[in-house]
Simulated assay, not measured.
Amino acid sequence: MDKTNEESNAKVCEYLTFRLDQEEYGIDILKVQEIRGYEPPTRIANAPPFIKGVVNLRGTIVPIVDMRLKFNCANANYDAFTVVIILNLHQRIVGIVVDSVSDVMGLVPEQMRAAPDIESIINSDAIIGLGSLSDRMLILLDIEKLMSDADMGLVADV
């Protein structure tokens, strides 16, 4: 059997990759509805600082989470590269603000490793593992688990 046939038989998972500060993350491409430029949302009183507010997306009110603030990144500047990834999670639409979107990366199981067991600002259940492709290292997130954390309260855990 030739190499291309073997690769096509392996289960490839596709991840949308994005940057937060100096780190690169990946989320399941099937959870992504669209990618939009950043526009300042309408603030919500008493919301946690990482929830920037809400936007009206074609008649749907969408909460916007600034992942840079959620993950305690050193800087959260809004510039031409800042984007909002609109996610569809359990029939709930949520937007996340990231520094930039890189690309869609297909990873086979051999390119994924378990996440190290270390204390982190991210709930360890929300980290699927680490993906590597040549010189790139991705932190793979289970975005549904992350958004259903108690402090987020945006998506009901199913």
Rank of each mutant, 00 (worst) to 15 (best):
D125Q: 13
P116S: 04
V83R: 15
R19G: 15
D117Y: 06
M147N: 06
E7W: 09
T4W: 11
L107H: 11
D79G: 05
F18Q: 02
A10L: 14
A156D: 08
L154Y: 07
M1F: 10
E24P: 00
D103W: 05
D2C: 03
A156W: 09
A80F: 11
P40A: 10
Q111V: 00
N75F: 14
T42P: 01
V158S: 12
Q33C: 04
N88V: 01
D2A: 04
P40H: 12
T42V: 12
E34T: 08
E14I: 04
V97R: 01
V101G: 02
A76V: 01
L140E: 12
G153L: 03
D157M: 06
V94W: 07
N123H: 13
G26C: 09
I96V: 14
A76W: 00
C73R: 11
D2G: 13
C13A: 10
S120E: 00
C73A: 15
M137W: 03
D79W: 11
G37V: 00
N9M: 11
A47W: 03
I139V: 14
A80M: 12
Y38E: 07
R19W: 06
G37F: 01
A10C: 08
L140M: 09
T82D: 11
A74K: 14
F18C: 01
R43Q: 12
L133C: 12
V54N: 03
M147R: 05
V108D: 09
K70W: 09
F50I: 01
I51C: 07
M137L: 15
V155G: 10
L89M: 09
N77G: 15
V12G: 03
E23V: 02
L87W: 07
N5L: 10
L146A: 10
S8V: 13
R19H: 14
I27C: 07
I51S: 05
V101T: 08
M1Q: 10
E119N: 12
L57T: 00
T17M: 10
N46R: 06
A150W: 03
K145W: 06
